[in-house]
């Protein structure tokens, strides 16, 4: 009779630690995916913006696919088909790969918008001072365009963090998956989902506050 008692049991302190650990895994996978996705996305956005190579012709539709196919389908397909081409990735890395590409496909548009936000005249002024193409990008386009689209980028990043919950379908135990496990055991779905929701909020809120304060500083 002992096992059944411990099978369904109330929420314990150790469960909170379990959730905290899981939240940490959410942070890990999101931070990694957002970092890689942002770097890739800026490069993709730049290719789209310059738009003079065949690359732009193939890249656009490629990114469209990742933007429009539901993430959960991408994850399952990638996780199951990657081994066929010899990539044996664990759920964490599969998740990072797909989330990063997904993030990159969103950031690409944001980044292109940022570059378009810098007027041609501004860029000519930079070049007329003797700046090289790359110096113009680094010292003029990046800071000016970056500020223009920073709020959109924060939106993308927070979205990717929430979407990282979908990696749970691969068996990666992040915040959502951990909550489901606890719900199965405790049969307290409302309580646990509330706690999990609070965790997500606790992760996003400081980021949006911080972003808002940066925007305010730039505006002044």
């Amino acid at each position: 009779m002992e096992p059944t008692i411990s099978f369904f049991s109330g929420l314990q302190i150790s469960d909170i630690w379990y959730l905290i650990e899981a939240a940490w895994r959410t942070v890990m996978i999101s931070a990694l995916a957002i970092s890689i996705g942002t770097v890739l996305g800026v490069i993709f956005g730049w290719i789209l913006y310059e738009g003079r190579w065949a690359a732009a012709l193939t890249l656009g539709p490629f990114l469209d696919v990742f933007r429009s196919v539901p993430l959960i389908i991408q994850l399952v397909l990638f996780y199951n088909f990657a081994p066929i081409i010899g990539l044996n990735l664990d759920p964490f890395f599969s998740g990072v790969v797909i989330l990063a590409i997904y993030c990159a496909s969103l950031v690409a548009n944001v980044a292109r918008g940022g570059m378009e936000a810098v007027s041609k005249s501004m860029r000519r002024a930079a070049r007329s001072l003797g700046m090289s193409y790359w110096q113009d990008l680094r010292y003029v386009v990046l800071p000016i365009g970056g500020r223009a689209v920073f709020p959109s980028w924060v939106g993308v990043a927070l979205g990717v963090m929430k979407d990282s919950a979908l990696v749970s379908v691969l068996g990666y135990i992040e915040l959502l998956k951990a909550s489901q496990i606890l719900i199965t055991r405790t049969q307290e779905p409302l309580l646990i989902l509330t706690i999990a929701g609070a965790f997500y909020f606790a992760l996003s809120y400081p980021i949006s506050r911080y972003a808002a304060s940066i925007e305010k500083r730039w505006a002044s």
Binding site: S119, S121, M122, R124, P143, R147, W218
Partner: peptide, 8 residues
């Protein structure tokens, strides 16, 4: 004609 000051 446009001043093109770097706003940042």
């Amino acid at each position: 004609q446009q001043w093109n000051s770097f706003p940042h």
